[in-house]
Design a protein around this nucleic acid. Structure first.
Length: 464
RNA sequence: GGCGGCGUGGCCGAGUGGUUUAGGCAGGGGCCUGCAAAGCCCCGUACCCGGGUUCGAUUCCCGGCGCCGCCUCCA
């Protein structure tokens, strides 16, 4: 059974499921006011891997991830771009899904949009006011965190300690600097929805509480997001759920940063890279592999060097797929499910090692180590006893990679006529034992950017 | 000021109180090959510093040093 670090307790504990055989996950999605960057890519990949692994173990998984399509940034960006918030968010949501598709991230089962949930958010805020834990000011409605038992649980800091560091804006009417806005009264020119407090729009933290509980119900299993969402976003979500008397997420999972030169990549530091930049200059699978190579809670450094290392690693896997002409399990189905032991002992043990690593707080580096050991074994057995003897091992590599969403590529490149002719000429020269000519033809091919290999079937060229 | 994380061999990156090792990339030697490539085999006496606990610490404790993060509606 899967064990994961739980931010709420600070310990790695078993992920208890609300309903046997069924897992429910809510992952905070993007605010669609700009193109996605590497950080968005990482959290999407981390939770895609978690989801795929749960599916692999045979669970029925419901995965919900939202789109935030109304907030200050959306309004500001739309204004400066001379467009409307809804046009802006429609555009960037499309960009978002294109990037997710490129990364091989499965679409969520449900994608709630904040703007579609405003009425239900108003209901929730009204109930918080009724319960006496929220109050109205001249500019909105706020939650009184002092009235929420256990506030600071996720931040792992007591209320007083958080208060000491909180920034206080001049002219605020909040009772405590930590109180956060549930409803913002409209300023001129802003999109609005009706409410008991006049026209306005919801605060950010409310949507995820309302949408997750609506779609997954009380006591859903896992709530995830990137580490920066712990405080205040998730803390404040939880605070509302507690104040509403609802049973909220049972396990909190957060992934680590993408860093650049050892520093957190962030917009304010101006050191962020868009996902498109990376995908345009590297194999999209390399980013998934880069994410898998590090533990999900560790920071990962994305540099041209680490990307190149991941691509070299990928080449080793692809080479195996080519050697065995492996079918891609993700060609036939969106995800793979473990069919259980096959009776081929070495294969079954390797899959068990893979699962043990994944069960141990999603230890993907360990899982990858099991994969590469299996790659070596498959090649060794094939060298000694032929490809058929090693086939179950090689197929297990593809299967287990697919369980992490990593697809292997066996297709050789399309050859243009000239290249194919050079390769054929080289085969003829070798057959005639005219090695000088064969070597010069290889140089010719190499000069055109091909890597030349001899196989039992003759010259094979591929891109390095 | 409060809270937390990290410091592993050329690089990336796991892990562990001591028996034989993560894994990948790069590098060296070998097998294979007409020569290569791919694949396979072998190779690096790594764990920030100083104390302490211990028969024994990279792993536990304390103290340093260095780096990073959160306490701001950043993934």
């Amino acid at each position: 059974m899967l064990r994961l670090y739980d931010t709420a307790t600070g310990e790695v504990t078993e992920v208890g499921l609300r309903a046997p055989g069924r897992a429910s996950l809510y992952v905070c999605g993007p605010t669609v006011y700009d193109a996605p960057h590497l950080g968005h890519g990482r959290f999407s990949l981390v939770f895609d891997v978690l989801r795929r692994y749960l599916l692999f173990t045979g669970l029925d998984v419901t995965y919900v991830s939202n789109i935030t399509d109304i907030d200050d940034k959306v309004i500001e960006r739309a204004a400066s771009a001379g467009t409307t918030p809804s046009e802006l968010t429609a555009h960037y949501e499309q960009v978002w899904w294109e990037a997710m598709d490129a990364l091989g991230v499965l679409r969520p089962d449900e994608v709630p949009h904040a703007t579609a949930y405003v009425a239900r958010m108003v209901d929730a805020v009204a109930e918080l006011v009724d319960r006496g834990v929220a109050y109205e000011t001249s500019d909105g409605v706020y939650l009184s965190v002092a009235d929420v038992p256990g506030y600071g649980l996720l931040a792992r800091q007591p209320l007083e300690s958080l208060r000491a560091g909180a920034r206080v804006e001049a002219g605020e009417e909040k009772r405590s600097p930590l109180d956060f806005v549930l409803w913002k009264k409209a300023k001129p020119g802003e999109p609005t929805w009706p409410s008991p407090w006049g026209p306005g729009r919801p605060g950010w933290h409310t949507e995820c509480v309302v949408m997750s509980l609506d779609l997954l119900g009380d006591g859903f299993d896992v709530h995830g997001g990137a580490i920066d969402l712990i405080f205040p976003h998730h803390e404040n979500e939880r605070a509302q759920a507690v104040a509403l008397g609802r049973d909220f997420a049972h396990h909190w999972v957060h992934n680590g940063w993408v860093t650049v030169d050892g520093e957190k990549m962030s917009k304010s530091l101006g050191n962020f890279t868009s996902l498109d930049d990376l995908l345009s200059r590297s194999d999209a699978r390399a980013y998934r592999l880069l994410v898998l190579r590090a533990h999900y809670r560790s920071p990962i450094e994305i540099t041209p060097d680490t990307v190149a290392q991941a691509e070299a690693q990928l080449a080793r896997l692809d080479e195996l797929a080519r050697r065995f002409e492996l079918a891609d399990p993700l060609e036939a189905a969106a995800f793979v499910v473990d069919a259980g032991p096959t009776g081929v002992e070495e294969r079954d043990e390797a899959v068990a090692r893979f699962r043990a690593a994944m069960d141990d707080d999603l230890d993907t580096p360990g899982a990858l180590a099991a994969v590469f050991e299996l790659v070596r074994r498959a090649n060794t057995v094939a060298d000694a006893s032929g490809a058929e003897a090693a086939r179950p091992l090689a197929e297990a590599v593809a299967e287990v990679c697919a369980a992490m969403g990593l697809r292997l590529r066996r297709a050789s490149e399309e050859l243009d006529d000239e290249t194919a002719a050079l390769a054929a000429a080289r085969d003829a020269a070798r057959a005639a034992r005219d090695f000088a000519r064969a070597d010069s033809l290889r140089d010719e091919l190499t000069g055109r950017g091909w890597l030349v290999e001899d196989t039992p079937e003759g010259t094979r060229v591929r891109r390095p």
